[in-house]
């Protein structure tokens, strides 16, 4: 198959824009990044299939029909994205209501382990000390 250049370029742009938003800390922005990235992936799946007439039997000869399989997979993905968007929006709102912002904070436990590593200490869970 020969790829469609417009698709290839749009996929690249959607990935780049999506990633740049995904790497932010604001949860709404991360969510928008996910949506852009998701559109890029859907297009990527579509790119691998032949374009043509709608895949409805009787409308056009099968040879001129678009490949239905990628469409089926993309349809599932689109609707899942809707559910995920709703959930992340609720999460962003709750984060704002609880802490006054919707930023993703650093994990405190991970920070604690990093501090231990910097001080060259163990976690104290090896339980090998003689005295209790």
């Amino acid at each position: 198959m020969t790829p469609n250049l417009v698709y290839v370029v749009v996929i690249g742009v959607l990935f780049a824009a999506g990633v740049s938003m995904l790497l932010e800390r604001s949860l709404t922005r991360v969510l928008m990044g996910m949506i852009l990235l998701g559109n890029g992936v859907n297009l990527l799946i579509l790119l691998g299939s032949r374009a043509g007439a709608p895949p409805i039997v009787g409308g056009a000869p099968q040879a001129e029909m678009a490949d239905p399989l990628p469409q089926i997979m993309i349809l599932t993905a689109i609707v899942i994205t809707l559910g995920m968007t709703a959930f992340l929006l609720a999460l962003a709102y709750r984060s704002w209501a609880m802490s006054g912002h919707d930023e993703v904070q650093d994990d405190m436990e991970d920070r604690r382990i990093m501090l231990l590593a910097e001080r060259d200490e163990g976690s104290g869970t090896d339980d090998t000390e003689e005295q209790s």
Partner: peptide, 19 residues
């Protein structure tokens, strides 16, 4: 930089995979 890199990689992979 990372975003542009990912975009290029994705476009490149899309291009090669379809071919």
């Amino acid at each position: 930089v990372l975003a542009v890199g990912t975009g290029l990689a994705a476009a490149g992979m899309a291009y090669a995979a379809v071919s």
